[in-house]
Design a binder for these strands. Sequence first.
RNA 1: GCCCCAGUAGCCCAAUGGCAGAGGCAAGCGACUUAAAAUCGCUACAGUGCGAGUUCGAAUCUCGCCCGGGGCACCA
Length: 878
Amino acid sequence: MSEENVNQYDFRVIEAKWQKRWEEADLFRVEYDPTRPKFYGLDFFPYPSGAGISVGHCRNYVPLDVACRLKGMQGYNVLRPMGWDAFGQPAENEAIKRGRNPREMVPEYAANYRRQLKLVGMSYDWSREINSSAPDYYRWTQWFFLLLYKQGLAYRANTPINWCPSCKTGLANEEVVGGKCWRCGSAVEKRPLPQWYFKITAYADRLISGLDTINWPEGIKTQQREWIGRSEGAEVDFQVVEHDATLRVFTTRPDTLWGATFMVMAPEHPLVSQITTAEQKTSVQEYIERAKRSTEIERQATDRAKTGVFTGAYATNPVNDAPIPIYIADYVLMGYGTGAIMAVPAHDQRDFEFARKYDLPIVMVYQSSPEQTSESLMEALPAGGVMVIGEFAGEPNSKETVRKVIEWIEARKTGEGVINFRLRDWLISRQRYWGAPIPMIHCPACGTVPVPEDQLPVPLPDVEKYQPTGTGESPLAGIPEFVNTTCPQCNAPAKRETDTMGGFACSSWYFLRFADPNNSERPFDPELANYWLPVDLYVGGAEHAVMHLLYARFWTKVMHDAGLVPFDEPFQRLRNQGMLLAYTAGRRVTKDEAGDGEEVDTNEPLEDWKVLKPEEKAAVPEDQWIWKWVKMSKSMGNVVTPDEIAERLGADTLRLYSLFVAPFEETVLWADKGIEGAHRFVNRVWRMWTELRPHYVADWRNGSTTTSDAERKLRRKLHQTIRKVGGDIEEFKFNTGVAALMEFTNELSAFRNALGNQPPTLEQTTLVSEILETLTLILAPIAPHLADEFWELLGKEGFTFRVPFPQFDPEAAAEESILIVVQVNGKLRDRLQVAPGTEAAEIERLALACEKVQAEMQTKQVRKVISVPGKLVNIVMG
RNA sequence: GCCCCAGUAGCCCAAUGGCAGAGGCAAGCGACUUAAAAUCGCUACAGUGCGAGUUCGAAUCUCGCCCGGGGCACCA
């Protein structure tokens, strides 16, 4: 009976037992220890949604956990914290939906997350748990707002903002995706409102150059570079005819000034009203009105025909004094450059289209051939050709020419070289309740005054009603007890700022708070931050490529400049996990649903496919279901939870499968079949290991060494596996690391079968003991519950997390002989076994001596022999 | 339209210039079993999306296409 029990892999009991012991021993709690090297592994700051985590979340939490456990076994002092991005719209919207207060809901949801993360064996130091909506956290978010303000990096401006009518709040540029709100997909409008901004544009250059110093996926770096969008060019002044005004334009092609035949201003340009003539007033007014009404989606549609209106005014081209008409058109954006352009239809496609439509002259600056004329042009010529007019006639169409022209313009004082960025300042104001109040006070006498640091936090009032107002005003504006205060400077009655900060403020510094989460004197102790930071390994989804990662880098640079931290990049190494898709039943969108945009649920992609809700499944015949692979998410109703997998197959199986299913960064299609295989493997390990365990001797290191071929081979495989598993985890190649473990168990199985019921020899006992112990430890980062159970079964104390990860023995891992392939003209002819390190000349000699090669040499002449030591010999004959 | 990433066996994936196959799923066969499951063992299956090129040698490098995924999109 007892024999039976030992061989029964009861993962439910084992996993619960070790999770309890880890907790009792406070195993993952870490302390500052400058005598030890540190390792900081961090997950993207999650919002704890009511749905809890799905197996999709395991795609990032498990690999980082494995990497951190390995680092711990390698002797690093590992910081692995977790906290909740609890402020912001996801939490608020969910609370509204459930008619609850987010203040009560967040801790509940966080508790569920915590429970689930423990269930899959995560090695978090829970003593460092933080909640960004707690006053002792947002107090410091507000403190950082004031820091930015003091540095001149926070300002209030009344410019038209991106307004999401559904979220009822302003959006930063980064939060507008294709003219739609990133969160809900509604069409974004423009609204004038006074708003707080962070001057991230002041750091544009450093946000680009810093990318060269960090180990991030190239794709993410490219996205950030393109988002910041640095472009070199010049600003040039055009005198407006018969007005005391100059129109300044930005151009990357000042070399084409000679071909500028008209100007275009954005409809919002402040000069428009001043220079528009009486005759044109009506049509210009109409155009401006129309531009205002159209949504960002409409304005951003690139395939749309160019439209515009003549202002009646003219400007003087500074290079040839020609008067050229000034138009307004919505393809020119007020937010980029100067909001006005010089149009060179011959060399810019957009200007070309506009010129053809409104019959404006086209003048060629560059020509690739004499036959080419402005009349014959079918499209603009952005590149190539030689300059044919002006002072620089004869110059090629090149960067060098652009540079020369800029110098010339500067000398003539009509313009200057300028670097422009696509990046705009970061809109931080939200007109919502659930966020950190912006710590500013509006005083009638003193103006805008910061809240003194010692009065922080400005507490978010606890209220019953917090729904967004929709008027563009924060719900806080309706709470007199909050709004009315006194001016910190003159003590006169004053009003508080009622906007709150967007959630990205909280996540721009949380990684620092983990270094010192309970500090009530400052956001963090510099000594602790210097020890733990920067984050060594940061893991999360690629969807934050621009927003969060850009903002966090910006805040870190600001802190660096304020002398708070010595580094200026927060995340040394970044990895993005792939998405997890589930096969999901859906149906076609019916005509009436597609018809009106108002009623369509904007959380779902606006396509012709809609997920079948559970209640709809009965109504729609099964042969009309359309199956699709879509992201696993609560709104799709296709979630598989770690709870059900842990219950059915165990956490270690789930961990192993999360790693094995595909390369880390690849998209995964969730199929239940695959995980059965992972479970089979874990069972197989259990069975083999427990069967061999009776042969274990603790002092195997003093035992006799193995000599038989088969045993030496198995030991070689063991040491190769140590090397492979450790290396693959470091390189984030978890799938091949797990495969290596499977390979080893396959060989171990053959050994066990060969052993049968015979008692093992002394040598075999030594080998088996080494295997039992080593296998336990190399499994430990991946299947920690199983490993700790094994460790105990070996009669050891404590936890594998505290045991050094095995070192591989290079001698034991070395191959005894190497296979050399012999090819003739690239085709396989023979194989040779040679000792490692055999020189090229020697294997060449052996290859030429091969029978099959000799046979071919009878009829052909050897032209060349390529001999690659350790690989092959290729004999070229003809 | 532009920029990334991928395309290898029925499926998920290894191999990053050197014998196309490590691992898993599914399939087939055998052993064990009264039988089945589980387990153990064995087996078959592709010439690497298409077309050129470089090379002694290409899944791997280069160029041009096709297909899928992701990102950006009037930025002057």
